[in-house]
Amino acid sequence: MQFTIEQTLKEAKGSAIEMKNLTKRFGNFTAVDGLRLDIGWGEIFGLLGPNGAGKTTTVNMLSTLLDPTEGEATVAGHDVVKNANEVRKVIGLCPQQPAYFPYLTGRENIELFGQLFSLPSKLLNERIELLAKRVGMEDDIDRRASHYSGGMIRRVSTIMALIHNPSVALLDEPTVAMDPVSRRSVWDFIKELRSQDKTIILTTHYMEEAQELSDRVGIIDEGRLIELGPPQELIDKYEVEDLEEVFVLRTGKRLREGV
């Protein structure tokens, strides 16, 4: 076995994301229930689960928006509560609900977020050009955000998440409402990030997307992790055709049994 410098560094850095008994309760309701997960550097992790499973709540805790009720989580070794400021420097968040300034253009929105991450202006401009091209927004980047279509907003929102080349990207359903071409271009882009050793948590309801991109997926249901592993392993384990069938098999029980 060969030891490259990168591998050694990677190990020295520890896990990119670590969740220990991560729990979030809203009143009596438990949205995330004792998650235990270790996500490595350079890993694309697909976070799957039915509506209301607790995916966004998990992402919100990792992005310091919500404090866990119990347990803890670290991102790049920084505790999301005690070291929130450090966490904020390394993450790039693409929220499920895109947030943007409607009176600014796409470019200005992205620029602003780049500046919040202290990107030097020359690099920032280059990155905007590059990323806009990558997701096919180069012709529309200078239009007002309020005039964008749903898919355009998503694409800009994805660029806003990745403009500062974060080492950990938290992408909460980034490709919703995108046309197949745009979606593919975002997929290519995500794969490229993996090759740069970036860690990505990707939530999605498109199983073919999760299957195509993820090194591992975790399926959560009612806040609990009920399945974990590389897509192919899960497919083999349940002897089904694809990840979608695994998903239906594991989470559709209640529906099927009519409970």
């Binding site: 420097k89 968040l93 929220p95």
Partner: peptide, 14 residues
């Protein structure tokens, strides 16, 4: 309400 304050609070902006 547009989620911008929350969105910005996940950046290094204090």
């Amino acid at each position: 309400s547009e989620g911008l304050l929350r969105r910005m609070s996940t950046t290094p902006l204090t």
